[in-house]
Design a protein around this nucleic acid. Structure first.
Lengths: 192, 192
DNA sequence: GATAAACGGAGGAGTATACTCCGTTTATGG
DNA sequence: CCATAAACGGAGTATACTCCTCCGTTTATC
């Protein structure tokens, strides 16, 4: 009988690169098609072989789960950065919402009905608290009306995360989204 | 040899009902998934058999074409009603954009890359002229800035036509869209 | 009540997607 | 630079889905 020793070796550099590419590709495709993309499409977009995808993520749930965690982490980070920044509470809320377009937060809302919410209670709570903080500050400052809720903000981030047209250049798509979001926020925020 | 006589009989009542249901179902699904839905899904949503779908629309192009014509007609009607109404130019533009959510104009923008634009030059021109009229009036009145273009309006109508979440009650979905559009328009329109 | 029009849905052909397997390539420690 | 384990790529097969036809049943209309 042999001893089984589990050592947490660090990932090899190429493995880390592949994993990152796969997460990015999956997130982009989820947002583009508004649902679960095919495995082949994800691997192709990521520029890796289909075998590599299956080594990193043996089944759909593992992949979707990893994408959500990744997106939430990046979004929560962006929120805290906005909260800690030197700007006004209104500007912080604006900065956060623009960041959600870049972090792809909408992907979470598209995919999460397929999963169990209790799989990531910590991030869910962290995201909730962060957003609540942003809104409370903005209300207190008078930047937004008291009838503006966290749900309003969350639904708006989903709306502006998704592409408007198919086959559009990503840069142009992003520019449109930021521009439209700015107009929306002009309507939401009180003018000085 | 027999004479072939083509008489345009009126459609039977059940046929007219089925056609209407199929067009509505196709439009809804196009908006929901942001692309071309499957035949089975359309027939199921419409509550008719798959055979009925194929009798009305023998191939994909016939169906997509019919959906687009239907949406455009309803939208152009809504635009003209708004133009002819007793309100200000700014209110007319607002009324028109809210109407596009209900007519499902976004479906045209999602599907039309698959078709030849020259297939419906008349409606295309009519829609274009109508939208131009709305914007020119609003600009002239000072309701919107001069840098607001027809493209801005068109892109916004696509954005607000699409559902934000999957599996949401259609009535609630519509309420969210109208509410968000109002905020967007508050940002777009100059305050008095 | 007769008749032509319209309907529904089972089923077969063709296509796309999921997933495995193994020969080849690459990062890493000595 | 070499040895070796880790990671990669993608052809190939099984499976699922989608399209579309066909025909027995139902329904509107005169």
């Amino acid at each position: 009988m042999e001893d089984v020793v589990l050592v947490d070796r660090p990932m090899r550099a190429d493995a880390r690169r592949s994993r990152r590419r796969l997460l990015d590709a999956a997130r982009e495709l989820i947002l583009e098609i508004g649902g679960e993309p095919t495995r082949d499409a994800i691997a192709h977009r990521a520029g890796v072989g289909i075998g590599t995808l299956y080594r990193h993520f043996p089944d759909r749930m593992t992949l979707l789960h990893a994408v959500i965690l990744d997106v939430l982490d990046r979004t929560i980070d962006a929120g805290h950065t906005a909260l800690a920044g030197p700007s006004t509470a209104g500007e912080a809320l604006r900065t956060y919402m623009h960041a959600t377009i870049d972090t792809g937060l909408g992907a979470v809302n598209i995919v999460h009905p397929l999963l169990d919410t209790t799989d990531w209670p910590d991030r869910h709570a962290a995201a909730h608290d962060m957003l609540d903080g942003l809104i409370k500050n903005a209300r207190h400052e008078g930047a937004v009306d008291n009838n503006v809720t966290a749900t309003d903000i969350a639904l708006a981030t989903i709306r502006f995360c998704r592409p408007v047209a198919i086959g559009l250049d990503p840069a142009e798509e992003s520019a449109i989204a930021h521009r439209q979001l700015d107009t929306y926020l002009d309507g939401l925020m009180k003018r000085p």
